[in-house]
Design a protein around this nucleic acid. Structure first.
Length: 599
RNA sequence: GGGGCUGUAGUAGAGUCGGUUACAACGCCGGCCUGUCACGCCGGAGGUCGCGGGUUCGAGUCCCGUCAGCCCCGCCA
């Protein structure tokens, strides 16, 4: 039988109690973390969200409470009243914040019993993630997991305050909305009232926040769920949260300035880190040139070096032919002090770059006497060797790694290799926060399979003023008023100045191969709105989950989401998704294909 | 759609070259213990070796398939 809570009121959270509370009568409630039975004396570590405090139950003080403590097991829910007391000489536990005190219990109530949990709820056992997710409500009792979600709360609180202080209005946008082409795959919701028609869950509130600017709200911000039906990754969930912002009468620098303020406020208020502003800004072209990727990790150097001009016409066919090819690129990085890498390690690196399409990875070990140990050294003249070495700042003990391919593959392979080596060589610290704005992205990219342009950012992104003139003659060269904020190699936010002229927007749809009729059908309401006096405007959206991941120092987005989904987009706790009743389907006018039924 | 890693008591692991009854730890249950704090000591229970098939005299171990979880490529305006 359980006791009732009765008129007991909690006076303190467990983790609050300190030596300064000694002498107070307190009432605490929580879960039994651990029970230590000494035959006479019983100790209970009581846990709530704030921490752990030790309860001491002496049979001489209250036999009834002691008898109850004898029955208690791990994870039972209890309430206790008693006096905060100093621990006897020599029994203070310096590992616990509450370790100077204990509560001498005078009365104990067992509020609920608990089955033995399927895994230990301490910080010492590494439990398989599928089990943790199935019993997520138990997993979430663990201090380390609770801390992540409390940090997330602090981040959103801090963001809301900053945005409010800076005039942003929090306005909700629809969750049941319209499917739009381009972008990610939509999650669809059937409409019962309109047979055969579907809503889509928003990939982002993009169009609605632009409409709010047309309405004159001037500044909008929302912490909002977004949905994308794409495959999952360590940092990607099908439903995720954005800090979504939009501002009127601004250009790029205005948005970046005020958003740097947001990020630095969050860092200061959540983990006490003071960021240096303004954050560095580099162009997309520079990012690709120096780092091979548009999300460079600036915590270490090892930049990519272009040696295409040097190897043009050299004796090594692989390099020479790429160098002479239109769009070919030969680049290299210098892994300082890595000449000690084994054959196996070099093979692993070769395998690594193959993932990104590289056909091989040439390497050179610089020996102590300055000579080159390399399968390819013999193809180069002394002068070429010297020039390559000088360009790469090669010194004895260094390992030079080369990629030769199309610009896309060479950059990506070496860029990823650079980030891989930075990790492998321990050149990155989780306490080091290096931000960079990447700007001047291309507006469009050419899809050779579908033979049309796609918007690199999204179809509402404005071109750079100075590039507008060649939008018709050379659309691939047009740069966008877009910007990504990159932190430690992770894209944590991105945005742009939008097109606010309906004729420019119409032209953009033309470029994307979206005909006038289709544009009207899909985006007519936006085009109409832009024609009714839309102000210049732009904005940004931050990935809240990714931001919290970095602040928490974790590598999995699931650690910062209370109820995350598995890589197959299922919820092991609720067992969603699941089949539904035939009746529900009938109401929605949906019939399953034979294949879906069989599965 | 593709590549890779993992799967053995409740948990996390060991299990050699294919060979007798699958190990020890933590947890759990019982007993003892009045200053522990991941308490200690004694005893006990607990196994579909993910699942299915194959090779073999014999499979946790080798092979094939499959399922689940994870990491990655594609995908993610």
């Amino acid at each position: 039988m359980n006791d009732i809570l009765g008129n007991w009121k909690r006076s303190h959270y467990c983790g609050q109690l300190r030596a300064t509370d000694i002498g107070q009568e307190v009432c605490v409630m929580g879960w039994v973390q651990r029970r230590r039975d000494h035959g006479g004396l019983i100790f209970i570590d009581l846990r709530d969200r704030d921490g752990i405090v030790q309860l001491a139950l002496d049979p001489d003080r209250d036999p009834e409470a002691h008898a109850k403590a004898d029955r208690v097991r791990n994870e039972w829910v209890i309430a206790a009243v008693g006096k905060v007391s100093p621990r006897p000489e020599g029994t203070v536990n310096p590992k616990m914040p509450t370790g100077e005190v204990e509560i001498e219990i005078s009365e104990l109530r067992i509020l609920n019993q608990a089955q033995n949990p399927p895994f230990m709820l301490d910080e010492f056992t590494d439990v398989a993630e599928n089990l943790r997710l199935k019993y997520r409500y138990l997993d979430l009792r663990r201090t380390s997991v609770q801390n992540c979600l409390m940090l997330r709360h602090k981040v959103t609180r801090s963001a809301r305050k900053y945005l409010d202080d800076n005039g942003f209005l929090d306005i909700e946008t629809p969750v049941l909305t319209k499917s739009t082409p381009e972008g990610a795959r939509d999650y669809l919701v059937p409409s019962r009232v309109n047979a055969g028609q579907f809503y889509a869950l928003p990939q982002s509130p993009q169009i609605f926040k632009q409409l709010l600017m047309v309405s004159g709200f001037d500044r909008y911000a929302q912490i909002v769920k977004c949905f994308r039906d794409e495959d999952l990754r360590a940092d990607r969930q099908p439903e995720f949260t954005q800090i979504d912002c939009e501002m009127s009468f601004v250009d790029r620098d205005d948005v970046m300035d005020i958003m740097e303020g947001l990020i630095s406020t969050i860092f200061k208020e959540t983990i006490g880190v003071e960021l240096k502003l303004p954050m560095p800004r580099i162009s997309y072209a520079e990012a690709m040139d120096r780092f091979g990727v548009d999300n460079p990790d600036l915590r270490f150097d090892m930049e990519l070096v272009d040696i295409t001009p040097i190897v043009k016409g050299c004796g090594f066919k692989v390099f020479a032919s790429v160098a002479e090819q239109e769009g070919g690129l030969v680049k290299a990085i210098n892994a300082k002090g890595c000449a000690t890498f084994s054959r196996k390690e070099l093979d692993d690196l070769t395998e690594f770059v193959a993932i990104y399409g590289a056909k091989g990875l040439a390497w050179v070990k610089i020996q102590e006497d300055g000579s080159w140990q390399s399968p390819i050294a013999k193809f180069f003249t002394e002068q070429e060797l010297a020039e390559i070495g000088k360009t790469l700042d090669a010194e004895p003990g260094d390992l030079l790694l080369f990629g030769a391919d199309t610009a896309t593959i060479a950059n990506e392979a070496l860029g990823r290799l650079r980030q891989h080596l930075g990790q492998k060589l321990g050149m990155v610290s989780k306490d080091d926060f290096r931000f960079v704005w990447v700007t001047d992205f291309p507006l469009l990219e050419w899809d050779s399979e579908e033979k049309r342009h796609f918007a690199v950012h999204h179809p509402f992104t404005a071109p750079l003023d100075e590039d507008v003139s060649h939008i018709d003659t050379d659309p691939g060269k047009v740069r966008a008023k877009a910007y990504d904020l990159v932190l430690n190699g992770s894209e944590i936010g991105g945005g742009s100045i939008r097109i606010h002229d309906s004729s420019v927007q119409q032209k953009m749809f033309d470029l994307l191969g979206i005909g006038e009729e289709e544009a009207r059908a899909k985006f007519g309401f936006l085009l109409d709105a832009l024609a009714f006096g839309a102000p210049p405007h732009g904005g940004i959206a931050f990935g809240l989950d990714r931001l919290v991941m970095i602040l928490a120092g974790t590598d999995s987005i699931r650690d910062v989401i209370a109820f995350p989904k598995t890589q197959k987009a299922t919820c092991l706790l609720s067992e969603a998704p699941s089949e539904v009743d035939e009746k529900q389907l009938r109401e929605l006018n949906i019939r399953l294909s034979a294949r879906a039924k069989k599965d």
